[in-house]
Each structure stands twice: as structure tokens, then as C-alpha cells.
Write a protein that binds this DNA or RNA. Sequence first.
DNA 1: GCAAAAAGGTTTGACATTCAAAATATCTTC
DNA 2: GAAGATATTTTGAATGTCAAACCTTTTTGC
Lengths: 145, 145
Amino acid sequence: MDINNTLNEVLVKLFRDINTLEERAIRTEEYQDVTANDMHVMEAIGPEGTKNMTRVARELEVTTGTLTISVNSLVKKGYVDRSRSEEDRRVVLVSLSGKGKKAYLHHQKFHQDMIEAVLKELTGEEQRVLEQALRKLTCFFRAQS
Amino acid sequence: MDINNTLNEVLVKLFRDINTLEERAIRTEEYQDVTANDMHVMEAIGPEGTKNMTRVARELEVTTGTLTISVNSLVKKGYVDRSRSEEDRRVVLVSLSGKGKKAYLHHQKFHQDMIEAVLKELTGEEQRVLEQALRKLTCFFRAQS
DNA sequence: GCAAAAAGGTTTGACATTCAAAATATCTTC
DNA sequence: GAAGATATTTTGAATGTCAAACCTTTTTGC
């Protein structure tokens, strides 16, 4: 059987399974009200300091209108703080609240645990080749854009 | 050490944006009206023969109600044919139209190009190692879900 | 046989996410 | 200080999703 076909099938399935797993990991007992989208927004805002709406929207590649709606919900749920800049009253600054930082770190830990678990399954040689392949994959998608 | 970072980056960025990236590749001049969701539905229906709604919905892991809406749109756009089974009048059979098959093959080519980009710089031995590694990971993630 | 239960799909109502374009408020420039 | 630029929110429309109610048709149990 052709390695091309095998890889195609495996990659498609793997991506789907990992996404499913990640979605499931985000909604834990403690963070039932956090959607995958919420987590992505929190990741873009980042755990340190503040960012304005335009910058976060650019990082997420969504319009600021879309981000406004996401942030509305995150503020209401208490994960994000929103305030107006004093220097430029047009600018809105967002940052993670204490609760938001905790949720963010919780998710980071999930990523780390998952990576550790995955690497334990593989030999050193397999790890090396996998890394090379994933780098190539990232390049491929970057080149498309 | 670096495998860790690569995996994390892939996990965070590539997997998150995979839908957007694929959609960008799907929407060409010829197939402007095909969304990423449309393509996933067409993949689940498959290029050969017919399947009933329940089976396709199960493969996509969505409700049949959701699939009905997706298929409505695909039928209207001319990518999918829908008919009632003669043996069991409850059953609705869906299949790709000529246009649907063409779009499907176009997307398969995108996948092929992706695989080629990844494999290009690996030796035959490395390709075997990669395949082995991905198989292990598929098993691993399957077991988690 | 026939009534009740099961099965396959569709419809409905609700919500989340998204964008483009209009609206609002605040700078900046000339 | 008026005109234009910038940052954000609001509005209106589309897509994608589910659960639950609702048809049709088939199967089951008596």
C-alpha cells in the first residue's frame, strides 16, 4: 500500500481526534463555561499585561466586530477585564482576570501533559522524524496563505 | 527539547487554524461556494455510490438534523444528489453529483500536495519511521476518546 | 392482522460564531 | 477648527450546531 495514501488517511483522522480531545479538555468541571473559542481568545490576549482589541483581532485573524462579541461574553463570565486607555480614549484594553489566568494556565498544562504523553509513545528516532515532518507541514500551510 | 516546542506550536496554531487553512485551499475560482463544512460532508459521502443520512451523520459525528441542513445547501448548490430508497421508503440516499465528484477530487489533490510537501525531504527509511510514529499516535488518541 | 413501538429524516426554536457595513467616539492633520 | 483617520461597537445577515417535536414508514408483539 502506498505510503502517500496511508499518511493522508492517518493525518486526516489524527487531526480530527486531537481536535475532539482538545475541545473536551477545555470544558472541565471547573471551567464548564469556557468554549474552545473562548480559550483561543484568552490565548491571544495572553497571560501578561494588556492588549488592545485591534491587535488581538489581528492575531486571531478575525474582525474587531467578531472579537467584540467574544470579549463581551468573556467579560460577562469573568475571565477577561476590559478598560479604556487613558492616553487614547478610543482604545479598549483587554487582559485576563485572575480567573482568566487560572483557566489559561490550566489549559497550558493540558497541552504540556498531552505532549509528554505523546512523546513517551515514541522512540528518539521517531520523535526526530515527526518533528521534521510537522515543521514541513507548518511551512506548507504558511506558503498557502 | 525542540520537539516539545514544535508540537506545542502545531497544537496551538496549526490545529486551530486547520479549518480556515483548508477552506482557503478549497475556495478557488471554480469552487467559490464550497465551505470547509461542505467539503467535509462531501468527503463523508465519498466519491463512490450512495449512503444514507444516518450513516453519513455518524461518520461526521453530527446529528441528522444538522446533516439535513448541510445537505439541503449542497443539493441547492448542485454538489449532491438526494433520493429516497425504494426498498425502505424512510431512508434518504445521498451521493456526489458530477460537479460534486470534481470538487472532491480537487480537494484530494490538495491533500496529496500537502503529503508530498511533507515527504519530499525525507528518505525512504524516514518515511517508514514517520508512518509508524503516526500510527502509534492515532492509536494513542483513539484510546483517549 | 393490527396496534404499539422503533427507526429514518425533517422541521423548529435557540444559540454561537462569523463578516461586512454603518454608526459612534476620539484623535490628528492641515 | 474642519476634514480625515483611527479604534471600537452595533446591526443585519449567513452558517453551523443541537435538542426536541414531528412526520412516515417499517418492525414487533400479541
